[in-house]
């Protein structure tokens, strides 16, 4: 399921998120949005602009700066019949509410013998590229994929941002929607209808025959650029966007690698212990005999995100990083 090119209307990513929330709140009175500066200010990223005017302060709720309190508010509300969207402004701030998210929200269903239902969406903003330095730029999605009970989605563009947000809010589990600052201005065709992209289903963004790149979130457009460059080397690259990181669509990735025999995973998060390690492990477990080269990984180096634009441009992976790593894997000179 890819954005229909016939849908003439193009929408920036940030407005796609905004439209998703607006339409979801129109659809279901149990949906509300709470977070720091989401109401009067419309969120520092603009995802909730105009919502206060349409839905009022009961449903668009400015909170104190109190991430654990906000997360608990969402958990208690979800457990008692509401369908909250909790905005944690920067993904880095998730560290402040880890108990509520990891020990409470993720485990309630299981610990209580299945009786709890927790339709809770956590919306947050990850990633670098804006010189926001070490405490406002992290990509921590791997942490949350490690916790049974949580689901994690990472949209790669405006179309995915809307459709995955809708699926997240309609899901009866805690779902973390990891948007990335670098993508907020990117436009794509976005249907005006309220559509849903199913969770747990990967998308083959670009079909190819002899190399697979699994790219997460903002690395999808970079991987597509890399694929164009690598075509000059005679590679026909297939680019897969998992869209949902937990549950992960291993089947689509493995089927691709069985066809292409070579693979690389690209994400913006630190490479060590990142999702790339898990995906590479699954590929070798399921398709070892089909592999003609080691499974490559592209990720950020092992340091905090730097501030200086010069340093950050060397930190966040790009299409060039991907091209270089693919060529290295195949034993070719850049």
């Amino acid at each position: 399921m890819t954005a229909p090119e016939s849908a003439a209307r193009r929408l920036p990513y940030v407005m796609a998120v905004n439209e998703a929330i607006t339409q979801l709140m129109r659809e279901d009175p149990a949906v509300f949005l709470a977070g720091e500066d989401v109401a009067l200010y419309g969120s520092v990223f603009g995802i909730s602009r105009n919502l206060l005017a349409e839905f009022g302060p009961e449903r668009v709720v400015d909170t104190p700066i109190a991430e654990a309190g906000i997360m608990g508010l969402g958990i208690g509300a979800a457990a008692t019949g509401l369908r909250p969207i909790i905005d944690i402004m920067f993904m880095d701030f998730m560290t402040v509410c880890m108990d509520q998210l990891v020990n409470q929200a993720a485990k309630m269903k299981y610990m209580f013998g299945g009786k709890a239902r927790l339709p809770l969406t956590i919306h947050t903003m990850a990633g670098g590229g804006r010189s926001m330095a070490a405490q406002h730029s992290q990509s921590l999605e791997a942490w949350f994929c490690h916790v049974p009970g949580l689901k994690v989605v990472m949209p790669s563009g405006a179309y995915e941002a809307k459709g995955l947000m809708v699926a997240a809010v309609r899901d009866d589990n805690p779902v973390i929607v990891v948007n990335q600052k670098a993508l907020l201005g990117a436009s794509a065709p976005v249907p005006e209808d309220l559509y849903e992209i199913p969770l747990g289903v990967a998308n083959i963004v670009r079909p190819g025959s002899n190399f697979t790149i699994v790219a997460l979130g903002a690395m999808v457009p970079e991987a597509l650029k890399a694929a164009e460059t690598l075509a000059e080397d005679g590679l026909d690259v297939e680019v897969i966007d998992p869209r949902t990181l937990q549950p992960f669509d291993t089947g689509t990735v493995v089927a691709s690698v069985r066809k292409t025999h070579r693979a690389l995973v690209a994400h913006e998060a630190v490479r060590f212990g990142g999702l790339g390690a898990e995906i590479a492990a699954q590929i070798q477990e399921e398709a070892f005999d089909h592999l003609d080269a080691p499974v490559g990984r592209v990720g950020a180096p092992f340091s905090p995100v730097p501030f200086s634009p010069v340093l950050e441009s060397h930190y966040v992976p790009t299409a060039e990083t991907i091209v270089t790593e693919v060529r290295r894997l195949l034993g070719r000179q850049a």
Binding site: A68, G69, M71, G72, L73, G74, I75, G76, A77, A78, A79, T80, G81, L82, P84, D99, Q100, N103, Q104, M108, M111, F112, K115, A116
Partner: peptide, 27 residues
Amino acid sequence: ADLDLGMLGANGIVGGGPPIAVGAAFS
């Protein structure tokens, strides 16, 4: 826990309950 009785769970984390109780009150 017994959600039908409004008992939202004993809790293994000291201080885990107050934010959740606030959420129930909000609801």
